[in-house]
């Protein structure tokens, strides 16, 4: 198998995910995830180590399935959350995408660098969050879907708030 083909498809999926978030196409975004998809951003336990045991340690986000993201999207759409109204604008850049283990027919893990610029309309301030992604992708009925996304947030000194659309 030519590994460049699934890699290109994976890179396309990651770019599409970034686009859907930035354009606030929430249904399209959620549809990229399998129902049992894990969405995980560990917290830092010290300046050099992150948490790893999601059962006994704190994560920034840990959703065992897609419903965790769906709750967040419901909250955004409600327009009632002070932190999300007005909704900040974002731009994600996802790049340097590589695999370490070669993709198979229907599964691959991609490693990327990301940055997300967040612009708060409330006070005209902006902030860039950045870090690394690991995406476990699975082919479901011919199309690639996200089965697990792990987000490493490098700058965890957070100006007031961070949400699923900022990482």
């Amino acid at each position: 198998m030519d590994e460049r083909e699934p890699l290109a498809q994976g890179v396309d999926l990651l770019a599409r995910e970034a686009m859907y978030i930035d354009l606030q196409r929430w249904d399209d975004w959620i549809a990229l995830y399998t129902e049992d998809a894990v969405f995980w951003a560990p917290a830092w336990r010290t300046d050099t180590e992150m948490t790893g045991d999601v059962g006994r340690e704190i994560s920034l986000f840990y959703f065992e399935n897609r419903a965790g993201l769906e709750d967040r999207v419901w909250r955004i759409r409600s327009g009632q959350a002070p932190a999300l109204a007005p909704m900040p604008r974002t731009t994600h850049v996802v790049t340097n995408t590589v695999f370490e283990d070669p993709p198979t027919e229907d599964a691959m893990t991609l490693h990327s660098a990301w940055t997300c610029h967040v612009y708060s309309l409330r006070d005209r301030s902006q902030h860039a969050f950045f870090g690394r992604y690991e995406h476990d992708l699975r082919r479901v009925e011919g199309a690639w879907r996200i089965q697990r996304k792990k987000i490493i947030l490098m700058n965890d000194y957070i100006p007031a708030a961070i949400d699923v659309f900022c990482v």
Partner: peptide, 25 residues
């Protein structure tokens, strides 16, 4: 512990669904 960390993340983190509303107000 699992119940504790999930309920903490849900509400209290700066990445939760309640604390950001406090800090913004």
């Amino acid at each position: 512990r699992r119940r504790r960390v999930r309920q903490h993340e849900d509400f209290f983190n700066s990445s939760g669904m309640a604390t950001p509303d406090d800090t913004i107000v």
